[in-house]
Design a protein around this nucleic acid. Sequence first.
RNA 1: GACCCCUUCGUCUAGAGGUUAGGACACCACUCUUUCACAGUGGAGACACGGGUUCAAUUCCCGUAGGGGUCGCCA
Length: 445
Amino acid sequence: MSIITRFAPSPTGHLHVGNARIAIANALLSLRDGGRFVLRYDDTDVERSRDEYADSIADDLTWLGIEWDEVVRQSARLDEYRGAASKLEKLGRLYKCYETREELELKRKHLLSSKQPPIYDRGALALSDGERASLEAEGRRAHWRFKLAPGEITWADLVRGPQHYDPANVSDPVLIREDGTFLYTLPSVVDDMAFGVTHIVRGEDHVTNTAVQLQIMEALGGTPASLSFAHLPLLVGPEGEPLSKRLGTASLREMRDDGLEPMALASMLAALGTSEAVAVCHDLVALATTFNFAHVSRNSPRFDPNNLWPLNAQLLQETPFAAVADRLGLPDADEAFWIAVRGNIDRLAGAREWWVICHEPLTPVPGEMDFLTAAAEVLPPAPWDGETFRAWVAAVKAETGRKGKALFMPLRVALTGRDHGPELHNLLPLIGRERVLKRLSGDVA
RNA sequence: GACCCCUUCGUCUAGAGGUUAGGACACCACUCUUUCACAGUGGAGACACGGGUUCAAUUCCCGUAGGGGUCGCCA
């Protein structure tokens, strides 16, 4: 059976690296095995879900190169969930509760302050029909909880190994709010079953949900044993702090705007926290071949945006002109220019700087005029090519007796205004003879 | 308060009851007749702490500390 994975974000905000990493893991898994990948918007929270966020998430996923075979919104599948709920009700696994949020909150506080686990006491289960009727007569509206069955819940986790969970440690989960809307728990199970999801890959913040959802799935007639789970440790910040505390630096939007290449990010997120060496991959298919849950560590890996830039630089260095021509924003730039500068930038936008240095007037840094004048006198005639610089330097060397740094550095500074940059033999033809001559004589050119 | 997970160079990790504790990235130096980068070579750099088991523990056990997660009518 072919693999089916899903990424199920709630459209309540923009994509951040934590989510993106989960999306990539799911996408790579299905890519590697030629399976299917479903994008599912868990938009059951109508208060917070917004279309603009759904669009933004889709846009960011696309930017990352992730394609989905199918997209669904839970808000469009309410009938399915209602059907599942009534099935659970008939089985006696779904029951009405009348406590208000305030009452529940109070109970939790009491339990906590008396050092008890804040677990729901199932008070609603003890209600008589008469009591229920009078509560409803008061105008109280019921919310519904799933009745967890006793007994250890077990599953094999692709990352965490054999798992067991005692449902006594959690409250019966509320499945339906008092206004009749669903929480994500039941829809998630219904959809995983309906779409034939074979691998649930998510953050380890979902492990207790897994225990609960396994019971729900079983109650609905599903076969939990056929499902594979992989709970990835959550990313933390550079100091080991929760990433949620620094969402600013973790949003894909911000990194995109900062000039990050999508495959630099994807390469990082796929390898971080695994024994795989972080190495630049140019497409997700190549990345997928390295992806393996057996290589995922159980530690919380630190994500430091600073580590992205060396990767980004390396990626650009390996990128052919055709792949950037349209994005350079320099209509006149050609392949020779790109080849000359790509090794010296860590952001694509950095190419513009060198374009300007080659093609626009430059105020020269005062240099050793005697030397520069001597160099100008032996400047080869046009036309120039990649070998011109070598010939010129040989002539300058013969003329002045200089060598090494003393020979090259003054030329570099005079021609570019900087003490570092792309190879001069590539730059020289781009600057052109006329301009070179002027810069050597100290003129603005 | 309960439950789950984790702790090896700065970072991501490999590792086995006896190893010179390995690799990658970052860092430093040298080389490649300039710079940046690439490449190559070399270098510095780690087993959280305390007990226990053992001839031997970084590895197994217990505890402590630290970190992450969960305990929502959020997802």
